[in-house]
Amino acid sequence: MSQQDLRALMAAENPLIVPSIYDGISALSFREHGFKAAYIGSYGTGATRYGLPDIGYIGPEDMADQVRRLAPLVQVPVIVDAEAGWGNPLHVARNTKLLEQAGAAALHIEDHVFGKHITRKPTIVALDTAVDKIKAALDARDSEDFLIIARTDSSQSHGGVEAVRRLLAYQEAGADALFLAGMLTPEEWKTLTAEARIPIVVCDSPGVSAAEFAELGAGVVIYYALAHMSATPAMRAAYAALAAEGSTVSIEESWNGVQGVLGYDAFLGGDAVRAKAEQYGLLG
């Protein structure tokens, strides 16, 4: 969970694959497969904690609470969605400290007007404003091992040339990594990778593998909705079966899968736990 590991992972992996987590079971399930970094996003947080769409309802305390609860479970560096910083550069500074102290290894700051997902063509803030937010985050962090990732959403509304221009400006401002939201043409990718001196981060996209992103030049691929989008169809199917059949017989699976994820066997069978339980008279 140490922050310094993330910079090294970004340099070593090709690419670094970063799946999302949103609760205890997803965090423990994540641990079973050897992933080296995890992601906590506003989309998953709003959807799973409050049943809300990702249009700016989630605040910094929501994200910090997720980090405090889940980072110790995954035991790897966690990248956190800091939206557009939740305000002006002063707010960005305060929220950078909040997420760093909560246990995150990195945050990403976006360059749109807060609440971008209300439209598919977000309003992008002035470049100077976005740069000031990045500089505020860099100034506020306690350790240089806490990474500040600068994200642009400008390709969707202003095109790929503008997205590349902005990302390179964020690099000059001191960002530790560059986050491209959206897609570029092959020529735009060539321009970006030729001038980028720091890792390029992308979100997974339908029909594109992590290896294909790496071929384009991405060093980090975030699977921002993997966990909660995978869980939702299974839950809906289970509720539908119970509603239709008045039973769960048709969908029953062994409890052992969940019990194993939660560590019941280790808890009940561990000598140290049993010794403590006997000491406190808990074993009949």
Score class of each variant (00 low, 15 high):
Ser2Tyr: 01
Gln4Cys: 02
Leu9Tyr: 03
Leu16Gly: 07
Pro19Gln: 11
Ser20Gln: 06
Tyr22Lys: 04
Asp23Phe: 09
Gly24Gln: 14
Arg31Ile: 09
Glu32Ala: 15
Gly34Asn: 14
Gly44Cys: 11
Thr45Pro: 01
Arg49Leu: 12
Gly51Pro: 08
Gly56Cys: 03
Tyr57Ala: 10
Tyr57Met: 07
Ile58Thr: 09
Asp62Ile: 04
Arg68Ile: 06
Gln75Ser: 15
Val76Asn: 07
Val76Thr: 11
Val78Gln: 08
Ile79Asn: 12
Ala82Val: 09
Gly85Thr: 12
Gly85Ala: 11
Gly87Ser: 09
Gly87Leu: 09
Asn88Thr: 14
Pro89His: 13
Leu90Gln: 08
His91Lys: 14
Ala93His: 07
Asn95Tyr: 15
Asn95Gln: 09
Lys97Thr: 13
Leu98Asn: 07
Ala104Trp: 02
His108Cys: 08
His108Arg: 05
Phe114Lys: 12
Ile118Pro: 00
Ile124Phe: 10
Ile124Gln: 11
Ala126Phe: 07
Asp128Cys: 14
Ala130Met: 14
Val131Glu: 12
Lys135Asn: 10
Lys135Arg: 15
Ala136Trp: 03
Glu144Asp: 13
Phe146Ala: 01
Phe146Lys: 05
Ile149Arg: 03
Ile149Gly: 08
Ile149Asp: 08
Ala150Pro: 06
Arg151Phe: 01
Arg151Met: 03
Asp153Ser: 00
Ser155Thr: 14
Ala163Glu: 07
Val164Arg: 11
Ala169Leu: 12
Tyr170Asp: 08
Tyr170Thr: 10
Leu178Asn: 10
Phe179Met: 10
Gly182His: 06
Thr185Val: 02
Trp189Tyr: 13
Trp189Pro: 08
Lys190Leu: 10
Leu192Val: 05
Thr193Gln: 03
Thr193Arg: 13
Thr193Asp: 00
Ala194Ile: 00
Ala194Cys: 04
Ala196Trp: 03
Ile200Tyr: 01
Ser205Gly: 03
Ser205Glu: 12
Gly207Gln: 02
Ser209Cys: 02
Ser209Asn: 04
Glu212Tyr: 00
Glu212Ile: 01
Glu215Ala: 15
Leu216Asp: 04
Val220Met: 11
Val221Pro: 03
Ala225Lys: 05
Leu226Pro: 00
Ser230Asn: 06
Ser230Asp: 00
Ala240Gln: 08
Glu245Tyr: 01
Gly246Thr: 03
Thr248His: 07
Glu252Val: 01
Trp255Met: 13
Gln259Cys: 02
Asp265Ser: 10
Leu268Thr: 02
Gly269Asp: 05
Asp271Pro: 04
Asp271Trp: 06
Ala277His: 06
Gln279Val: 03
Gly281Pro: 08
Gly281Val: 05
Leu282Ala: 13
Gly284Leu: 11
